[in-house]
Amino acid sequence: MIRWDWIGRNLPEIRELLGDHIVMALLPILLGLLIALPLGLASVRWRRLYQPTVGIMNVVYSLPSLAVFIVLIPITGLAEQATVIVPLTFYALAVLIPSVVDGIASVPTHVRQSAVAMGFGPMRRLLQVDLPIAVPVVLAGVRVATVSSISLVSVGALVGRGGLGYLFIDGWQRQFPTPIVVGIVLILLLALAADGLLVVAQRLLTPWARARSSA
């Protein structure tokens, strides 16, 4: 069923698709974090912003990705990375903004109060107390967003830029299953590897969080 010789012959192209896939999947997470952090913090500071922000993000999340890709083509261009990256950034935001808000909310009241009482100013408290303590909750959101982003990229193949998703179209058009299997396996491995790396990163970043619930 699998034509190993096809894989051997197309290795350079597969590698290129994989690289493209990684960039289009992970860049939205990075951009998402950069945007979600200030928006999340603003929602914590001004609680009234939170519900509308989450509402808008949920509406965006419910839009079919293919429709968004197509709408974006006139703006960002056919077969361009940006056509995929922009919508995926919004999907990431829908997960990451609530994570940032929940992360800050996970700082126990007595910890926040003692930080104030020790003489932390607002900025210092945010950077040295609130954000570090929010890391485990934010990272949990990053894991969800990353895995979903990796799988969503392939839809972009329908607008000419889908990373490994191209293999699905290629295999289907030619009634030739090998590229499809290769695509599925690589996307799966990529998701597992990204998630594994995030778990390791969390262990290293937050050695204090392992028995958190009891602390």
Binding site: P108, H110, V111, Q113, S114, A115, V116, A117, M118, G119, F120, G121, V129, P132, I133, V135, T206, W208, A209, R212, A215
Partner: peptide, 22 residues
């Protein structure tokens, strides 16, 4: 100024309020 005032006054809270990440 509050932060200056507070750095000169020790404070102990009920559940200790230790920073879990430090």
């Amino acid at each position: 100024d509050p932060p200056t005032l507070r750095r000169g006054i020790g404070y102990v809270i009920q559940q200790a309020g230790l920073f879990p990440h430090r």
